[in-house]
Amino acid sequence: MPDVIIPGPAGRLEGRYSPSEDPTAPVALILHAHPLGGGHMENPLVEMMYDSFRKRNFATLRFNFRGVGRSQGSYDQGLGELSDAATVLDWVQGYNATARYCWVAGHSFGAWVGMQLLMRRPEIAGFVSVAPPTNMYDFTFLAPCPASGIIVHGGADKIVPADDVERVMSKVRVQKGIEIKRDIIPDANHLFTEHLPELERRMNTYLDERIPLVEKERSERQITGKR
């Protein structure tokens, strides 16, 4: 799990990277919560998501957005942070040029950035969004959503009420064959303070179900392409 320093748009970006022994292994990028709200890559929730993909032999990377930890620069209203995420994805793909596909996972602000990134990067085949801040940011850019994924929210979230997430995400259009699963953990707050094991269980259940389908869909496309 080596520390890495990545040249970013506003200076160096601090990260943690776990390479895979498989040169064709997929890539996973993990994004933390709001930089001005105490979000950082060492948060237990972020580490849990990182470990979930690492244990599945993904080439996995988490990093601090600009202005957090040893990352240079300062908060940039989400625009710079999206550029940070795109730059870091480029970096990890540079070391994994034969990766089969990518996943992105994020918490709160990081979920918003991650879902913007998947709209711009067709190689992203799946996503995990935990407590997306639908009452703080516009999600109409998901028009339509190009990849399947899961949204997990806390039923006792006082920062982003679960009803608001449901209202916004129920209106999101998706491409043909794409499904966004929505899952609520009762009594969990925005940080899943007392419910991290349950969040991990539900996330892992989804990944165990979804990743084999992604692999199957990829194989079928390759076969069709050969024809």
Rank of each mutant, 00 (worst) to 15 (best):
S71N: 08
L89N: 01
A86V: 08
S83T: 10
G110M: 05
E81F: 06
D76P: 05
V88H: 01
W112A: 00
L31R: 06
P44E: 11
I30H: 05
V92F: 06
A105T: 04
F63M: 10
P35Q: 07
R62A: 00
V92S: 04
M41W: 03
N64M: 05
M119I: 07
D84N: 08
D76I: 05
R100P: 11
I30V: 15
V88G: 01
N57A: 14
N57R: 15
R100Y: 04
E47F: 08
Q77N: 15
H34L: 14
M41N: 01
A33S: 14
L89G: 02
A105D: 04
D51C: 12
A85E: 02
R54F: 07
D90E: 13
Q116T: 01
S52P: 09
G106H: 07
Y95N: 10
G114R: 00
R70M: 14
L29S: 04
L118C: 08
N64D: 14
G114L: 01
G39V: 03
T60V: 12
W112E: 01
A59N: 13
V68D: 02
L29G: 01
V68M: 11
I30M: 07
S71P: 14
M48Y: 05
A111P: 07
D76R: 08
H32T: 10
E42L: 11
L29W: 00
A59K: 06
L79Y: 14
E47T: 11
V113N: 01
A86F: 03
R54G: 00
G110L: 09
H40A: 02
R70K: 15
A99C: 14
E47I: 10
V113D: 03
L117A: 13
S74L: 12
R56W: 13
P44I: 08
D90V: 02
L36W: 12
Q93Y: 04
D90W: 06
H32N: 12
H34D: 09
G110Q: 02
W112I: 00
F53H: 03
F109P: 03
V46I: 15
D84M: 09
R100C: 12
D76W: 06
V113H: 02
L45R: 02
A99P: 05
M119C: 14
E47W: 05
V104P: 00
M49K: 00
D90A: 08
M48T: 10
A33H: 11
K55D: 15
F58V: 07
R62G: 00
G73L: 05
W91H: 04
M115T: 13
V88K: 00
L36T: 13
T87R: 10
A86Q: 09
G78Q: 13
L89Q: 06
A33Y: 02
G106L: 05
A86R: 08
D76T: 11
G106K: 02
W91L: 09
D76M: 09
